[in-house]
Nucleic acid binder design. Structure first.
Lengths: 214, 214, 214, 214
DNA sequence: GTTTAAGCGAGACGGTACGTCTTGTCTTGGC
DNA sequence: GCCAAGACAAGACGTACCGTCTCGCTTAAAC
């Protein structure tokens, strides 16, 4: 869901005023790119500041000065990744929208090198990075709510259907399969999860009140 | 789903002939317990062999001798965790069975201290541990298939419904919410995911052939 | 022997044209004072340009611009310390003159905070500073030669007595005890070394020709 | 005065019982030798743990493990240097004994490479090393007191002559000239300081009671 | 009940990475 | 146009783990 590279200049990290143009910004981009490249090559556990700095053509201490530690580095990578103008597909059908969304997720999680899985795994290593990761997902899911709203507007879903649980139900199986269960990529899985969720939603599974146990 | 403590004697680790009774077995249990305790206290990244050994009242080299490295240690913990006689609930209703299952997952993922999440996260640190984790999940899902079979036998599901995708769809949202999205525990989420999946399954969402793209 | 603070304007450092009055001179004084204060507080090894600059209310780069490096800074401090009108006591007696001199040394080496010892130790850190330190001592000893000349004029010393070795013999024990041996301050040591040297000098120990090896 | 290399096995540093023979002892010797070699080549300020370890054929962390920091390393070097059976000359004459002593000092301070000056300078860098340096000097001066005792026994010195101030007075000029004043080596200086001190001592300069101001 | 060999305690070691601290240079923006 | 502010390169420091090795001691299994 969404890309991991984006316009980084829009989200200057900490500091008072980080010298908008010039070396500072260029260095940041180089380092963040190096993080992604290293993650892709060596995985979340082979990520060392030394290697990142070398690849970015920067000295190790520069990384520590700007990002304090690995967690800060990952957090900034994630923040930069979220700073784009991504939006969900708009096909006119809930199932197809969700399928398109799932296909993006599928592609991101199975792309070679596996940058996204490594990034997710790495985020467990620091509270700061985990926080950024959750911020990113929250933003992505928020942008996706329009998919449900459109379906509601079309009358394809019962009134009261809640977007967030629906979206989570639709996308969770992909993450679970590919990230945790280590299953082989399955092109059908994107549509299967989308259709199951669309069916359940049409049947009222995601309306706020469980209406008792019908 | 399932417990993380179990009868360890049933799965002697790699060694040639493990001296069934006595110090060896006792030491193993102490060390594995220490791993869980350390994971609970310090999280997946604060797991050090030194601390495990000290807590187990054993010398560091003993750990390395028996389990070779941290990955081996985690793998053995996971294998021991899977060596029990756990089985899914049997309530007579698919939705209720799935709800019960999800409640177990919910409890495991939100228990204090957070041993299970830490264990899952830690498993990313070594291929060997990741393999063991997947073995554990595969075993658990296999044991759960009976839930679907019973529903099929009762005629509650269309013929051709596949168990595995159904189970994954039912349980994935819990993992996704609690592990990846870091959402607050929500007692309703277990039933919501169960009902949505049951509804979708009843509508034929998990029959093998997608019946083309409608 | 001599003081460590003195009129600084008389010895413009390296710079091209030192702008006699105004900010330049004021800044120099602030920085040199800050060096002494830092030396007193943190000792010869805790002297950092950063701390000196901060204490002087000046930016770090200003220090580097004006003094190039720590060695230059120390050298300037020492040169400033030597730029005074100090002179040895004149009591009418060689032993008393030397005693007075030694008491000054004793006080300088045992004053709190220990600025002088720290300065001497710090001077080992750069050839430039070491050179300045030796320049300072050489100047001080040169000014002290008059003490010996007066004694010669009074006829208290044999003709041919050399001033420099006599002065070194008289003062060395103080430096040795307090700086190298770390002995506790001893008020008697000043006079003891002075008297021993005066006695030896009167006996002809510092005449140029050793009169062969008797 | 005395040598800086000595039998190191006689003074096992800290720890309970350092496995007397074998790798441990060999490693210690290699490292201490490397410290001296590095001091000789690069001076007190060019002494880095990395270089010492490399030269000793040992890993950097081993040095930190055993000696904690540079100060501990220097302290152990100094302790090892003091663990020999050195003794002062015995010529039958106070002046000649002191001259011989001073010649040893002169040689040590002017030897190439300048290991001893570097070691002394380096000792200023850590309280622990400074302490060891003073311990070493104290031991050396204690061993030298016999020189004065013999002169007293011969009747060459007035009763009540105190050994320590005499020895300090005799040796201090050498240290002062060569270490602090940076004077060029002067072969006569050893005898000059010795004779001056012997003359003063014979005249009663080092008897405890100053006998008022004669 | 004694061998006997595995398991274990103890700890030095090589090695990797971390994050910190200084030094001295270089760049940039503001006054 | 100077100069403050501060980013940067370079490199040493000391720490924390990891996993390997060697040495003896102890103890459980086998004879």
């Amino acid at each position: 869901m969404g890309s991991e590279t984006a316009d980084p200049e829009t989200a200057p990290p900490p500091g008072p005023r980080p010298r908008p143009g010039g070396r500072t910004a260029r260095t940041r981009r180089q380092v963040l790119d190096a993080v992604l490249a290293e993650l892709g090559e060596h995985g979340y556990d082979g990520l060392t500041v030394e290697a990142v700095a070398t690849r970015a053509g920067v000295h190790r201490t520069t990384v520590y000065r700007r990002w304090r530690d690995v967690g800060g580095l990952l957090a900034d990578v994630l923040d930069a990744a979220g700073a784009d103008d991504w939006g969900p597909p708009d096909t006119g059908s809930l199932e197809d929208d969700l399928t398109g969304l799932n296909e993006e997720i599928h592609d991101a999680l199975t792309a070679r090198p596996p940058v996204v899985p490594a990034l997710i795994a790495a985020s467990f290593r620091s509270p700061q990075a985990a926080e950024a990761q959750r911020r990113l997902w929250d933003d992505r899911y928020a942008r996706c709510e329009v998919v449900v709203e459109r379906a509601l507007a079309r009358g394809d879903l019962p009134a009261g259907t809640e977007a967030r649980p629906l979206l989570v139900a639709a996308t969770a199986p992909l993450y679970h399969q590919l990230l945790l269960l280590g299953a082989a990529p399955d092109p059908q899985s994107a549509r299967r999860a989308a259709r199951a969720t669309a069916l359940a939603a049409a049947a009222g599974a995601f309306t706020g009140q469980p209406a008792a146990d019908t």
